[in-house]
Amino acid sequence: MSEFFASIGFLQEGPFAVPRWEALFEKGMDTLWQGAATTLLVASLGLALALVLGIVIGVMSASHWRIPRAFARGYVEFFQNTPLLIQVFMLYNALPLLFEGLFLPVVTIGILGVGMYHGAYIAEVVRAGIQSIGRGQLEAALSQGFGYVGAMRYIVVPQAMRIVLPPMTNQAVSLIKNTSVIAIIAGGDLMYAGDSFAGRFGHYGPTYVMVGLIYFLMCFPLAILARRLEERLRAD
């Protein structure tokens, strides 16, 4: 058996050599788990923010009110058409200049960053969902004396949400992966933990395999959930 392993060159030397794996398991895993916890925190609060923003802005851009709709369009176009990396960089470096001394904790920047960025994508999903609900539903609600907001809240949005749940879950998956941008501002997240451990000892190979695996474990259940929801939707 060991002869067999000995015959595999890349386990003897190079980036994936066995001693590097041993080092990772002995000294690195604690750091990685801590990073993963931070990533989960940023992802869950970021997702909550993205959902709230996405629903509010999605409703605004599906509405007939000119000013809210224009605002919503501007918001979506801005956040969809600039890299998240630059948005986070600006939050970190430009915000303190604009508002003197406003240094947000990096975790907060991460939450705001992914929340606002994915809020834009979720807004588009929500808008499409609302527009797929027949106009008769809105009219029935209005004819009963609901205002526009009430009609949206009780009648249209709940129906739209069922339809948009699968694409929304996919957004949650990319949101989790995108939390890794805060690594550039020493965010303490999983990506950052991986970078710093790997950088310190040069064990890049095993570290990034492990980091990738942990991201996979966080995202895969959601991806499965998205598929389930989609099948259930198709069933009825």
Binding site: G134, G136, Q137, E139, A140, A141, L142, S143, Q144, G145, F146, G147, I155, P158, Q159, R162
Partner: peptide, 20 residues
């Protein structure tokens, strides 16, 4: 308008019941 609509009910050709 919304207030007045509370006492003016409408029945539509396509029913428009709330499916959820």
């Amino acid at each position: 308008i919304a207030k007045v609509r509370q006492s003016v009910a409408m029945v539509f050709q396509q029913f428009n019941l709330y499916p959820h």
